[in-house]
Nucleic acid binder design. Structure first.
Lengths: 144, 144
DNA sequence: TTTTGTTGTAACATTTATTGTTTCATCTAT
DNA sequence: ATAGATGAAACAATAAATGTTACAACAAAA
């Protein structure tokens, strides 16, 4: 199973918010047309990013801006803002292993810590990349 | 979004196949009762593990056995056997970024390599853990 | 103060993947 | 042959993501 497109959409939104911040007012319609999804999807994700303190959204006049320096927002910040997974549950565990079976009774005991290591490795890598990295690469692309 | 329970089910199956290999014939019904899911689910995963060369399944008499030494089967082997994701697509990318927008046109260019790094970090960790690790821990649990 | 453009949100439809179930053909050791 | 399995098809049920419509709430500007 894949990680939902909310994450790449959020990244795309943040990229736009930075690149176009001086040229355009960043509305949900504006973002929706670059990303090619329904504006309501955008607004939901705007809400999530706002709740996480990554952006500010103006109600009446409209428009969203990034709330922190780009190098202070990591991929992990964005991932956790939009991916509504509870802590430590990247892997979906089967619900009812048989407690009367020696293996069933202990399977959590032997797997949980290892699954956690895998999740931690992924999050560590997400944490090592910032919006500044993304947008400096984007700047290079745009110059060509 | 979470990684499907097929992975933890497969792990549970392999743990049983090792622990009970001398005591019982490992049928899909036997595994199903330890894991508490429908035997057909088990058979589908048995098929996937067989296709990946990790186990052997006998048709007439029934019964499944692990095909390689436990320390030669990594978590990544199992993950890739049961998780039917195409290569390099842990992250679901939104399908139609607007090619007429400078950001939409380049978003793949700036994100793909970074998403790949994250996926690689996760797979690297999955690769570093083997069934032998899991089952030696399981042995310790069973002794208590 | 009304208008305008926007966000916030609810409600619902659609799509997709997972998970569960029934059924039966097929296989192979006995 | 029979019995106990697996393999596989068909389908139902569930859950999550994604898409859409509609409208209330808001704040700036006319």
């Amino acid at each position: 199973m894949q990680i939902s497109s909310r994450f790449t959409i959020a990244m795309h939104m943040l990229a736009c918010m930075d690149v176009f911040k001086d040229e355009y007012k960043i509305t949900s319609d504006f973002l929706a047309s670059s990303i090619n999804v329904n504006p309501v999807i955008i607004r939901k994700i705007l809400s999530q990013l706002k709740d996480a303190g990554l952006i500010e959204v103006k109600r009446g006049p409209g428009g969203a801006v990034i709330a922190r320096p780009l190098d202070k927002i990591t991929f992990l910040d964005v991932y956790q803002a939009v991916e509504c997974i509870e802590e430590n549950t990247l892997f979906h565990f089967h619900e009812n292993p048989n407690p009367n079976c020696p293996v069933g009774k202990n399977i959590h005991c032997v797997l949980d810590d290892k699954l956690l290591r895998v999740q931690a490795a992924m999050e560590q890598e997400l944490k090592s990349i910032t919006l500044a990295d993304m947008n400096s690469d984007l700047g290079k692309c745009l110059k060509k």
